[in-house]
Amino acid sequence: MDWLPQLDFTHRALIAGLGIAVLAGPLGSLILWRRMAYFGDTLAHSTLLGLCLGMILHINLYIGLVAVSLLVAIILVSLVKQNWLASDTVLGILSHTTLATGLIVATTVPGIRIELLSYLFGDILSVNMIDIFYILRVDLVALIILWGFWPKFLSTTVDKDLAKVEGLPVDVINWMFIIMLAFVFAFAIKIVGVLLITALLIIPPAAARRFARSPEQMVLLASIFGAIAVGVGFMASLNWNWPTGPAIVVMATLIFFLSLFTKLRSHA
């Protein structure tokens, strides 16, 4: 990999963090509007199993991560469709079961060596150039899909029945969204860790809501807030030796609280 530009580890970390923060705008907003925060958590928690699977099978770890996330998503969606349990019950069961199983596998199966702490809370300083190129690729593909299908994402989010009657392929759009989430989670783990990834995705749009008068304004502002949280959180972690993932999330929360106390001229 001699041809890659040689970047300082701090620069690599910052680029990776910003790469994920950019997606906090559109993906995070959609998660909030669709009330899927808990769904996102469940996907994230399942990635530990994916990581183990990748190590056991000696395949690219990212493939294992995405595969298991998608499998869990399929189980989730079909269980919820059965309609014999409330969706938050299904989510609660799967979310913690996958995390618990993952932890057991990670600590007992020989040949698996996972730094649990950095997996759970992120290890942004260990990001290498390969990770960065993966993240940028995911960014590019996700942003193109979101851009191209934005009206459809919006319409199915506002009212899926209306969207379906009006002829939109609601299920296809939903799965596109879930697949995007699975990929983003797989690549975001190094940045903030599985326990905090949903926070990085949903706190910036929650902060942006008060200032936005249209969905797009909220998305744009959320991406900006996410980027600020990553930047400031990263500096805090360098200066005061805070763990980076938690520092980023705390900064996002700080922005959220500041937004609550900001006076607005007119209310949306």
Binding site: W33, P151, S155, T157, V158, V165, E166, S214
Partner: peptide, 24 residues
């Protein structure tokens, strides 16, 4: 289709005009 109700998530900033324009 005119559903009985519209349950719009309060975190979604959407004007009436925008809601109408979502129709394909």
């Amino acid at each position: 289709y005119m559903p009985q109700n519209l349950s719009l998530e309060s975190l979604m900033p959407l004007t009436v005009e925008r809601f109408l324009c979502l129709s394909p």
